[in-house]
Amino acid sequence: MKMLAGKTAVVTGGAGGMGRAHALRLAALGADVAILDIDLAMASKFGEQLTAASVQEELEALQVRAIGIEADLSVENEVRQAVDRISKKFGRIDILVNNAGGAITKIDQSSAVNTSGEDRAVLFAANFDTTVNMCQACSPHLMQRGGAIVNISTIGAFADDLEGRLAMYGAAKAAVEKYSKSLAVELGPYNVRVNCIAPGLIETPRIKALAPSRNLATGHQARTIPLRRLGQIEDVVGVMEFLVSDQAAYVTGESIKVAGGHTLVTT
């Protein structure tokens, strides 16, 4: 029997890239899966090739039930409506993977000094607000049977490059890290585990498409990482699988860096 059979997983930012990979892995493990995204056609924007007409259909091809919901997860009411739809369709929520977000503002205008108030609001809405809204909406369901929350952070919450780029993105994810620890304490008595994954330079379709213009996730940077390579989506997905499984039954309030040792060295 597949280890997640009979369970329901929710993945935000699930219409492409790393979120799609998380959703597919959860479905392969037997879970019914709901994907939430601000744009369910997100994969096509970065040339990602699907194996079916939609991610929902890819999931259903793995012999599980699935639903795709388009919503702005920084808006609390849209989140509540989406979670209500998921609950009514599947009758339960056991796993939440908060993957939505990213460093979505201009990298040359994202330092601690020059990030505008508008960009700061965008980054916190996409990364922190989406996480909090989803955790708050899903927690009552998770508390009924126990379960797992995995919030995707970044190594930028722990370290900066020499130019201090992406400072506000890192700050938003640092807020996710602290919120996750507080949530782990609150939900622990209900057997709900809350952990973070802090990826480094991962070659998602979006990162690969933007790497030249951002000078980020380049071959030169790969050579400065102790493992001498950029991360792959499967590197992160494997850690997610561990954290939602019974193998991590006594792990909560932690953050696992998936970065090839990137934060161990200075460049």
Rank of each mutant, 00 (worst) to 15 (best):
Ala112Lys: 01
Ala112Asp: 00
Asn114Thr: 04
Thr115Gln: 08
Thr115Leu: 03
Ser116Ala: 15
Ser116His: 10
Gly117Gln: 14
Gly117Trp: 09
Glu118Ile: 12
Arg120Pro: 00
Arg120Met: 07
Arg120Gln: 07
Ala121Gln: 12
Ala121Leu: 10
Ala121Asp: 13
Ala121Asn: 10
Ala121Ile: 07
Val122Glu: 11
Leu123Asn: 09
Leu123Ile: 01
Phe124Asp: 07
Phe124Glu: 03
Phe124Thr: 05
Ala125Cys: 01
Ala125Gly: 08
Ala126Leu: 03
Asn127Gln: 08
Phe128Met: 09
Thr130Leu: 07
Val132Lys: 15
Asn133Ala: 10
Met134Leu: 14
Met134Pro: 07
Cys135Arg: 03
Cys135His: 06
Gln136Met: 07
Gln136Ala: 09
Cys138Thr: 14
Ser139Asp: 05
Pro140Asp: 10
His141Ile: 01
Leu142Phe: 01
Leu142Arg: 08
Ile149Arg: 03
Ile149His: 04
Val150Asp: 08
Val150Asn: 06
Asn151Lys: 03
Ile152Val: 10
Ile152Asn: 14
Ser153Thr: 12
Ser153Gly: 06
Thr154Ser: 15
Ile155Asp: 08
Ile155Lys: 07
Ile155Tyr: 13
Gly156Ile: 02
Asp160Lys: 10
Asp161Met: 08
Asp161Arg: 15
Leu162Met: 11
Gly164Ser: 07
Arg165Phe: 01
Arg165Cys: 02
Leu166Gln: 13
Met168His: 07
Met168Gly: 02
Met168Asp: 11
Ala171His: 04
Ala171Lys: 05
Ala171Tyr: 02
Ala172Asn: 10
Ala174Gln: 13
Ala175Ile: 09
Lys178Arg: 15
Tyr179Leu: 05
Ser180Gly: 11
Lys181Gly: 11
Lys181Val: 12
